[in-house]
Design a protein around this nucleic acid. Structure first.
Length: 203
DNA sequence: AAAACGGGGGC
DNA sequence: GCCCCAGTTTT
């Protein structure tokens, strides 16, 4: 199947390694990463975990206590509120253990399909597709799907991609999307999978 | 379906 | 000055 071959090429050429596996840290970092660039997310996460290391500690913090720490990631008032609420729920309802099911993760404030699936893959090594704007755009450009919404793309991709590629393709598509297959003026000249691409706008 | 949330960096 | 960024929730 050609799709599988191309997916593996993307994964090989645009690796994204997740050093941190701790479910709580991955969960909080991923919430911080929403609509934020990686560099700023990392600064915010480092600031935060430097002071609050566990859900137990963070659940006792006040929102205003962490504004300055997470400000680099943006949307900081919302995120502060949600992060502390998440910590309280993890402590009170789950005894400090982050749940490992999509259904339970989606109940947490500020956790949608993308965030939940990233946690499932990165921390729990489960097959999970996090379809963000990059994955959505690139899947359509390649001609793998013909969809309007990311959720539609998610279900289509689950049909055409083998499960063992669900996790790895997420991060690799993001890197691919940032470096080469950009939203505007993509760099098709240096694209390693250009010959498999059906996008009409390609140059 | 659209608005709101937001600092930081690229242009 | 304007626009975007591993989105989600509220209106």
């Amino acid at each position: 199947m050609e799709i599988e071959k191309v997916a593996k090429l993307i994964i090989k050429n645009f690796p994204r390694d997740h050093k941190e596996k701790d479910p709580f840290k991955v969960l909080i970092t991923t919430v911080l990463s929403q609509r934020s660039k990686d560099e700023n997310t990392e600064i915010a996460a480092e600031n935060l975990f430097n002071k609050y290391k566990t859900p137990f500690e963070l659940s006792k913090a006040k929102e205003k206590d962490i504004y300055e720490l997470i400000k680099p990631a943006g949307l900081y008032r919302q995120k502060a509120k949600r992060i502390i609420e998440i910590s309280k729920i993890i402590v009170e309802k789950y005894s400090g253990i982050v749940p490992d099911s999509l259904e339970e993760l989606l109940k947490l404030p500020g956790v949608g399909r993308k965030t939940a699936n990233i946690v499932l893959y990165v921390s729990f090594s489960k097959p999970a597709l996090a379809v963000d704007t990059h994955v959505h755009r690139i899947s359509n450009r390649l001609g793998w799907v013909n969809t309007k919404t990311p959720e539609e793309t998610e279900f289509k991709l689950m049909e055409i991609l083998p499960k063992n590629l669900w996790g790895p393709i997420n991060g690799s598509m993001v890197e691919f999307g940032k470096k080469v297959c950009k939203p505007v003026s993509p760099n098709c000249k240096i694209c390693p999978i250009s010959k498999y691409c059906k996008w009409e706008g390609k140059r």
